[in-house]
């Protein structure tokens, strides 16, 4: 059972603002998805199975540490809604208001 509260939280994490109708709509959809997947619960000894971490069987696809040509800056910025000649522009983010783990407010 997915509650409205859970759905609101998921929407907030995805930075989506949903109307009450939309929330109910997605809640019902989520519930169907979870129910569908719960078929797995009927597998006996599920815990003893190794989780499938990759659908292809090979491992160790590596690249050599040799630089290749990067994109020209103009091309890199071309698809951004807003930019100047060297930077992407986004609405002002207040420094350190929410800085994730690996970013340390830089």
């Amino acid at each position: 059972m997915i509650t409205l509260e859970e759905l609101r939280r998921i929407a907030a994490l995805a930075k989506l603002s949903l109307s009450d109708e939309e929330i109910e709509h997605f809640r019902a959809e989520f519930e169907r998805i979870v129910e569908y997947v719960s078929a797995l619960d009927r597998i006996r000894a599920l815990d003893e199975l190794e989780p499938l971490d990759s659908v292809v069987s090979h491992t160790n696809a590596f690249a050599d540490d040799v630089p290749h040509q990067s994109l020209p800056t103009a091309e890199a910025l071309a698809n951004a809604p807003r930019h100047n000649e060297s930077f992407f522009k986004v609405p002002k983010v207040i420094a350190s208001e929410w800085t994730p783990d690996q970013n340390n407010g830089q």
Binding site: A76, S86, F87, F88, V90, K92, V93, A95, Q106
Partner: peptide
């Protein structure tokens, strides 16, 4: 890298 103090917007260098 986010640069907050150089512009009214936040500038992003990837």
């Amino acid at each position: 890298k986010s640069i907050h103090d150089h512009d009214v917007d936040t500038l992003i260098d990837l």
